[in-house]
Amino acid sequence: MFLRMFIKKAVKMNTAFIFYASLVLVGVSAVIMRVIEPETFPTLFEAVWWVMTTVTTVGYGDYYPVSVGGRIYAMFLYIIGIGLIGVVIGKFVDGFAELKKRREEGKLPYQGQNHIVIIGWSQKASYAVAEIIESEKCEIVIIDKLPKAPVIEEYIHYIQGDAAEEEVLRNADITNAKAVLVFSDDTIHDSLLADGKSLIIASSIERMSTDIHTTVEIKKEEHIKNFTHVQVDEFVLSHEAVSRMAVRSAFTKGIAGIYSQLLSRGHGDNLYEIFVHANWHTYREAFDALLQEGATLIADGNRMDINRRLDEPISEEAKLLVICDKAVYEKLKGKEWAG
């Protein structure tokens, strides 16, 4: 009865107090046993060892009290020490469980850098997560209002809340992120309202970090002009892009397969970024060098007129885009073509 009451009161005590009380109990008990039985416990370490194996119920039996006084104190440890340490272990287990629960509910701030933030969970966002994992395997932070994380993985962190709020973006460590993908809210059927929400989110991101690369999905192309005061780097048309690709495939058979292959890293030749090599002075030099390795240079950033600019000098900040398979790309990285 006494032990049960003690444990109930201990459970209600402050965790820090219980932890320090346990340390004091172990330390004091070790000193007491060292004083009572100096021959059994020749050093303080042996006494601490015996106390720890006793209160954790391990009981190796290599050390044990032989005197009446030592055994009486051992009985005290059986009653008080084991119960106290049991409460400490229970609180540690509860703490880990609470931590896991808070992580699943998106209530733990993310701390990291060079991660990709995905705003708005949907089927499209799930495809984006799979593509990121296939491409770079970097850390991913998802922001949404779902009650629990849509994906439970070690490298995927969930933040619950409104992405237009500064605190939520701060919890996602937006200032240290590598890129942000803002997906259109599929629950809003009015394209004007959906793109308006994306505009507010993009404005909130810009207010906190003007350097981050931001890609926004919009439902109508004519709404892009409304983003002119916001530094959005890329726009993706959600429904119009699919419709246009379908029309192109009707006139040019097989073109849809080319689009799909370039958009996905799953198979075949894909689009990769290659930074400027120190030995390349013109686009022609870069084009010829990459072609010999099995890669085709097609663009510098969003400019696809490389074939008309072959003799122009390349700036050190240029972002060259090539088409090749993954094996060639890995070979190019191994030869330090990226700089």
Rank of each mutant, 00 (worst) to 15 (best):
Y110A: 05
G120P: 03
I119G: 06
H115V: 01
K101I: 07
V117F: 08
E104S: 13
A149L: 11
I119C: 02
P150R: 14
K101D: 07
C138Y: 02
G120N: 05
N114I: 00
I118M: 09
K124I: 14
S122V: 02
P150A: 14
V117Q: 07
S135L: 10
C138W: 03
D144A: 12
G120K: 04
R102C: 00
V129K: 06
L146H: 07
R103C: 07
I140Q: 01
K100I: 08
I116F: 04
D144K: 08
K145N: 14
I143S: 12
E105M: 08
I132V: 13
D144C: 09
R102F: 00
W121P: 03
W121V: 12
I143M: 12
S126P: 04
N114A: 01
K124A: 14
N114G: 00
G120E: 03
K148D: 12
E134Y: 03
L99E: 10
I142A: 11
A149S: 15
Q113W: 02
K137V: 01
A125W: 06
G120F: 00
G106Q: 08
D144W: 03
E104W: 09
S126I: 11
G106E: 10
Q111I: 05
Q111H: 07
L99K: 08
P150D: 15
Y127L: 12
I116Y: 01
C138R: 13
G120T: 06
K107T: 00
I140R: 05
S135N: 08
S122Y: 00
K124M: 15
A128Y: 04
I140L: 07
E131P: 06
A130P: 01
Q113L: 05
Q111G: 04
P150C: 14
G112I: 05
S126A: 15
N114V: 02
K124L: 15
I118T: 07
I118D: 02
I132K: 09
I116N: 02
K124N: 15
G112H: 01
V151M: 10
K145S: 10
A97E: 14
G120L: 05
Q123N: 15
S122A: 03
V151D: 09
E104F: 11
I119V: 10
P147L: 13
D144V: 09
A97H: 11
Q113M: 05
A97P: 07
K148N: 12
G106I: 06
S135C: 07
E104C: 10
I116S: 06
K137C: 06
E131I: 01
K137Q: 09
I118G: 08
S135G: 03
P109D: 05
K107Q: 04
A149N: 14
A128T: 14
L146Q: 12
R103E: 12
S135Q: 08
W121R: 08
S122H: 00
S126L: 15
K137S: 12
K124G: 15
I119W: 00
P150V: 14
Y110V: 02
P147N: 13
C138S: 12
G112P: 01
P147I: 13
I119T: 00
D144F: 03
Y127S: 09
V129Q: 08
H115Q: 02
A97W: 11
Q123P: 01
V129P: 08
N114Y: 07
K100F: 09
I140M: 02
I133G: 09
L108Y: 10
I143T: 14
